[in-house]
Nucleic acid binder design. Structure first.
Length: 339
DNA sequence: AAACGCCGCAACCGCCGAGGT
DNA sequence: AACCTCGGCGGTTGCGGCGTT
């Protein structure tokens, strides 16, 4: 036969623990150590299920538990570990001394998850998703502002997520740089509208814009491979217009974006950073943060594109985005354990 | 000041694998 | 081998605090 039932649930107390119960449990465990949860409540004089006692101890009473707000470093670690481990809260907690799985789980669900969603990042896959991103502020403050087409915000947050937008923006800028087309407000509005449509999961109809351009400018493969670096270089060299505003800067709170010249225009829809890592061809991580040799000819830490963020919220968001793009693996993390 | 709604977190629930009988 | 509990885990719930109206 098996063991006796762990506890008879009838008559046992549930709900919040009182200070007296906490004291009883703490004193008992200090004397006898944790474990034997089945018999512990009775021996400690508690009208609780053993499971409830164990949870109370591991999640609240344990002396090595660190209380209080999560530090920035802890949040970084949680995000990075979650991108690798998923909802393996206990595994994540094992790498955050003093934090319990329950606490991390709660913090993820109440803070980090929401923040990622606001940033347009799928908290499950850690993949950028336009349909999750609140881009209205970005659009309203830059693209749709008649006096300012701030391509930095536009490209910095969108281009990698939607290759069609990258194509379109590349073509637009190329045309503008060659003075082959006026950058009219109409076009900006069209682009803005299309982005809004795209946000609600309407496919971007590139052809709509191709009509207004030279078809060669749209379809010429070399041009289509133009990239963030092209933008950055061209901006440095010429464009004195507002296009350059905030595009390249070296300030501390900047977002570190990909400037890989081979930014793919056929990124998979459910792209995530793991798959990028594995694909190893169309995208590369910063060599300085990923030790695994990469075949990409241009590491991300060469001509980098920095996005200057203005508000506290934006800095915070960009900072998190930066973390995701950098995808730094803590030294203490034994990846083999998960592979 | 009261009512209401939202949010965060502690605690519970249900499931699963490991291991004891 | 089958049955059963334990311990652990992730998901969910519900309560209390707080802000807003």
């Amino acid at each position: 036969m098996g063991r006796a039932p762990c506890c008879d649930k009838n008559g046992l107390k549930k709900g919040p623990w009182t200070p007296e119960e906490d004291l009883k449990l703490s004193n008992f465990i200090q004397l006898h150590g944790p474990g034997n949860w089945r018999t512990l409540p009775k021996n400690a004089g508690l009208q609780r299920c053993g499971k409830s006692c164990r949870l109370r101890w591991t999640n609240y009473l344990r002396p090595d538990i660190k209380r209080g707000r999560f530090s920035f470093e802890e949040e970084e670690t949680i995000i990075q570990l979650h991108s690798i481990l998923g909802n393996k809260w206990s595994a994540i907690a094992a790498r955050l001394p003093g934090r319990t799985d329950n606490e991390i789980k709660n913090y993820w669900n109440t803070h980090i998850r929401k923040r990622l969603l606001r940033m347009g990042i799928d908290p499950v896959t850690h993949a950028p998703r336009l349909d999750l991103l609140d881009i209205s502020s970005i659009i309203s403050s830059s693209l749709c502002n008649p006096s300012l087409l701030n391509m930095s915000n536009f490209l910095g947050t969108q281009a990698l997520m939607n290759p069609e937008l990258l194509k379109l923006a590349t073509a637009i800028l190329s045309l503008k740089q060659q003075n082959q087309m006026p950058f009219s407000k109409d076009l900006q509005d069209q682009l803005c509208n299309s982005l809004l449509l795209d946000q609600v999961q309407q496919p971007l109809q590139l052809n709509q814009y191709q009509q207004g351009f030279s078809s060669e400018m749209i379809t010429n493969p070399p041009l289509m491979q133009a990239n963030m670096e092209t933008f950055a270089n061209s901006q440095e060299n010429s464009t004195p217009s507002s296009l350059n505003d905030g595009f390249v800067s070296q300030q501390p709170n900047n977002m570190y974006c990909s400037s890989n010249p081979t930014v793919p225009h056929d990124l998979p829809e459910n792209l995530n950073f793991q798959s990028l890592y594995n694909s190893n061809q169309n995208f590369s991580f910063d060599q300085s943060v990923v030790s695994t040799p990469m075949s990409s000819p241009t590491p991300l830490n060469s001509p980098s594109t920095f996005i200057n963020s203005s508000t506290e919220d934006e800095r915070e968001s960009y900072s998190y985005c930066s973390d995701l793009l950098k995808f730094e693996i803590p030294e203490s993390l034994d990846l083999d354990e998960f592979m």
